[in-house]
Design a protein around this nucleic acid. Structure first.
Length: 820
RNA sequence: GCGGACGUGGCGGAAUUGGCAGACGCACCAGACUUAGGAUCUGGCGAGCAAUCGUGAGGGUUCAAGUCCCUCCGUCCGCACCA
């Protein structure tokens, strides 16, 4: 028999056997309850990194554990395979994006397979293949038909380095999320999805997700940015309507000026032909030249200028000057803000700088109405200088009263504003799903008929290091006929944001090869929602919000039966080396291939699960990897030695019962750690303790060791370890005369009776300080436990000249003497 | 500025409901086996000679606090002129 733990042979042997026996293939027809485990699919960059290993090791433990617990588990894998890197490779190395991507996929697939993950590879999807993007296009058409996809001319985020537009979510601190270039604003016709129609539901339904981390929900909550307020209808002197959104309508009598975003359409209109036209245009140009970072960073010096026009306050008819500034944003609210310096810090600063009047409209009490203001008064109080509303308490009373009055007078209405913007989905790039629309001179914009899908990406394109989308270099792609009139028409040249592709892949896995529809609803009815989703927190907003939106839209179209795609979400921490993220530029990258080659997949998986709980960042430590390797070697030798020793059964001794108790305690803990807490690190340490206990028992009992107890311990150890290190456990399973794979073995239940013990060690404290540990019979009542403690020889010494005022007893745990 | 998470030995971390702080592992030290050891096994390992003291600092509640409350400091993350 092979004595040495030869992980290379063992791992490749079992990987082949699992594949040949199709043990991970999953079907819908079964009486078992379903469980859908999903890890975020990777972008096929070409190589697996440690973050992937961590993500997929976590998911694999959950999938294997649930399977062994009797669930019908769906655990698929695929590729988020559209995206810019493939195009950059095409420019740099002259290799075609499709070829580059597919060969990366092949490479990464075999890397994944070398980890021994329990995927049903028959359900593999790649978003860049026509069989997949045909349905991405089809889903686009459904959104279009339901009015959720529209084209609009807008100032959009432009990344000059990626030469494409970005969604708001992809702009981080004014920089491109991908390449870190400074994002510019550009006026372009672009495709949007109306995610804002779903803002309220996306917000409300966060409450239906108790299985999501609070942190992620908070981030989405803030991103949606709901704010309740009033749109008050100011007018210009000339009668133009100038609506203003405010959350502080209670301060409306304190308005002393009006500020507009420089891009506000009224600005040009009001200044046209006046002496202000030129300086205002100049100011506007200056503001627009500021990059997004400068414009939105809080420390920008507030600047503004009067534009020569006035607005009329709807509550009191007061005429106030209209200004433009560099801090009012056109795309929030109405692009116009009422200036109330008395009760808003920003307005106070602005008014100070430009000597604008300040009128107090809130005070501590009615007698302090004219107390001068050293700074903006933002505390609660009562309304003053506010006409018929004087004396009302703010905020709720005053806000409601004024809002009601404005509504009654037809001068305003209560509105809800969201920070969330519509999702910009068009990209001026080649390697994405073409947007299935055509433009006809006669009939205008037309959707491509569904039966003509997919609109295939052309291959007669050129990849140049600058300028426009490579799609435009195709001599054939652009020309088509109008589905309406049959006349000549041109195709939409933009492709879709890759987040569109990843917003529905979890549904495709349910029915991965359907060529009639994106999925059969019966199948998604069975599998959806994903019971456990696992991935990095960097997707907290982008992917997770888009997927939620998408699912809700599909639900509304009757295509899917759930409103939320992911019931439980686990966001794993990063893998660090030397305290920072692994990166090529820092030269601190540890490659999974290297580790697997040196120690094997089981060791790699075990270490990455042992080193930290999954949600926390994990510091890579080569020496600790070695420790996990040693642990597997110890198990290897221990289990084989037990099976080869030829132990006999015997009457259960105290030592036997102790070991059996440890086995069942471990089983209880490992089960709870995996199922309830995802604390794989403590599950592994419990198994280490079990191995230590088994080794000590074997060495102490020698040939007399109880065969039944020890063999049962070894068997349960292999079962518990199998989700973490499936290769070594299957090999030992086989070497110890078991049939099949541990994967198909039921997860055992622990036996409560075996946890009992005759005696316990309890702590004896005086005033909470530990004085001694004593062993007493289990389950003693308080009086008996107290008697034990009072009988201790040191009892009087501990008390000194004090009295035992009280004795606190926690049964089977501790006795605390309160000495006074 | 606002919101959130976190702070425990030399290191990663454990302590799940307020009940024996430091499980498990790494590193280190000593020993065994050995021609040899970067293999394996055994033992030790928070500080202090000790009484004792110790979970970022200070205060509080409690018989009992890493855990609960208050104040502060630090680290990380998210949002940030949102009207």
């Amino acid at each position: 028999m092979e004595r040495h733990y030869n992980f290379r042979e063992i791992e490749s042997k079992w990987q082949q056997k699992w594949a040949a026996d199709e043990i991970y293939k999953v079907r819908e027809e079964t009486d078992k309850p379903k469980y859908y485990v999903l890890e975020m699919f990777p972008y096929p960059s070409g190589n697996l990194h440690m973050g992937h290993v961590r993500n997929y090791s976590i998911g694999d433990v959950v999938a294997r554990f649930k399977h062994m617990q009797g669930y019908n588990v769906l655990h698929p894998m695929g590729w988020d395979s559209f995206g810019l890197p493939a195009e950059n490779a095409a420019i740099k190395h002259g290799v075609f994006p499709r070829d580059w991507t597919l060969s990366n996929i092949d490479n990464m697939r075999s890397q994944l397979q070398s980890l021994g993950l329990s995927y049903d590879w028959d359900r593999e999807v790649a978003t860049c293949l026509p069989e997949y993007y045909k349905w991405t296009q089809w889903l686009f058409l459904q959104l279009y038909k339901h009015g959720l996809a529209y084209k609009k001319h807008a100032a959009v985020n432009w990344c000059p380095s990626c030469a494409t537009v970005l969604a708001n979510e992809q702009v981080v601190d004014g920089h491109c999320e991908r390449c870190d270039a400074v994002v510019e604003k550009k006026d372009l016709d672009q495709w949007f999805f109306k995610i804002t129609d779903y803002a309220q539901r996306l917000l409300d339904d966060l409450e239906k997700l108790p299985g999501w981390p609070e942190k992620v929900k908070t981030m989405q909550h803030n991103w949606i940015g709901r704010s309740e307020g009033v749109e008050a209808m100011f007018k210009t002197e000339a009668g133009d309507e100038l609506p203003v959104f405010t959350t502080r309508v209670d301060t409306i009598f304190g308005v002393t000026y009006m500020v507009l975003a420089p891009e506000h359409p009224l600005v040009a209109k009001l200044t046209k032909g006046t002496e202000y036209e030129e300086p205002v245009a100049e100011f506007t140009r200056k503001v627009q030249q500021l990059s997004n970072i400068d414009r939105t960073s809080g420390n920008l010096e507030k600047e503004g200028m009067f534009i020569g026009a006035y607005a009329i306050n709807p509550v009191n008819g007061v005429k106030v000057p209209i200004w433009i500034t560099n801090y009012v944003l056109m795309d929030y609210g109405t692009g116009a803000v009422m200036g109330v310096p008395s009760h808003d810090e920003r307005d106070f600063d602005f008014a100070h700088k430009y000597n604008l009047p300040i009128i107090r409209v809130i005070a501590k009490d009615v007698n302090s109405a004219d107390e001068p203001l050293e700074e903006a008064y933002t505390e609660l109080g009562v309304l003053v200088n506010s006409g018929q509303f004087d004396g009302l308490a703010n905020k709720p009373d005053a806000i409601n009263a004024i809002a009601d009055w404005l509504e009654a007078e037809g001068k305003g209405k209560k509105v809800i504003n969201y920070r969330l913007r519509d999702w910009l989905i068009s990209r001026q790039r080649y390697w994405g799903a073409p947007i299935p629309m055509v433009y006809c001179e006669k009939c205008g914009m037309q959707p491509v008929p569904e039966e003509e899908l997919p609109i295939l990406l052309p291959t007669d394109v050129e990849f140049l290091p600058f300028g426009e989308s490579p799609l435009k270099t195709s001599p054939t792609f652009g020309q088509t006929t109008c589905p309406c009139c049959g006349g000549p028409a041109t195709r939409e040249m933009d492709t879709m944001d890759t987040f569109m592709c990843s917003s529905w892949y979890y549904m495709r896995y349910c029915d991965a090869h359907n060529d009639q529809q994106p999925w059969d609803k019966a199948k998604t009815d069975y599998w959806m929602a994903v019971d456990q989703y696992i991935g990095g927190v960097e997707h907290a907003i982008l992917h997770l919000m888009y997927s939620r939106f998408f699912t809700k839209a599909m639900y509304d179209f009757g295509l899917i039966g759930v409103e939320e795609p992911f019931t439980n979400l686990l966001t794993q921490g990063m893998v660090l080396k030397d305290g920072t993220k692994m990166s090529k530029s820092l030269g601190n990258v540890v490659s999974p291939e290297e580790i697997i080659d040196k120690y094997g997949a089981d060791t790699a998986r075990l270490f990455i699960l042992f080193a930290a709980p999954p949600e926390r960042d994990l510091e890579w430590n080569d020496a600790a990897v070695e420790g996990c390797y040693r642990f597997l070697n110890r198990i290897w030798k221990l289990v084989l030695s037990i099976y080869e020793a030829g132990y006999q059964n015997r009457e259960l001794t105290a030592a036997d019962a102790d070991l059996r108790r440890t086995v069942h305690l471990t089983l209880k803990k490992v089960t709870a750690d995996i199922a309830d807490r995802f604390n794989f690190n403590t599950a592994i340490s419990a198994m280490m303790e079990l191995v230590n206990a088994m080794t000590a028992y074997r060495d102490a009992e020698g040939e007399a060791a109880n065969a039944a107890v020890l063999l049962d311990a070894a068997e349960k150890l292999l079962i518990m370890l199998s989700p973490f290190a499936p290769h070594i456990t299957d090999e030992l399973w086989q070497l110890t005369n078991h049939a099949g794979t541990v994967y198909d073995t039921a997860w055992p239940a622990y036996n409560e009776d075996y946890l009992q013990q005759a005696e316990v060690e309890i702590a004896v404290q005086v005033n909470g300080k530990l004085k001694a540990r004593i062993t007493i019979p289990t389950g003693l009542d308080k009086a008996a436990a107290e008697a034990h403690v009072r009988a201790l020889p040191d009892f009087a010494k501990w008390l000194g000249d004090k009295q035992a005022a009280k004795i606190i007893i926690v049964p089977d745990k501790l006795v605390n003497i309160v000495a006074k």
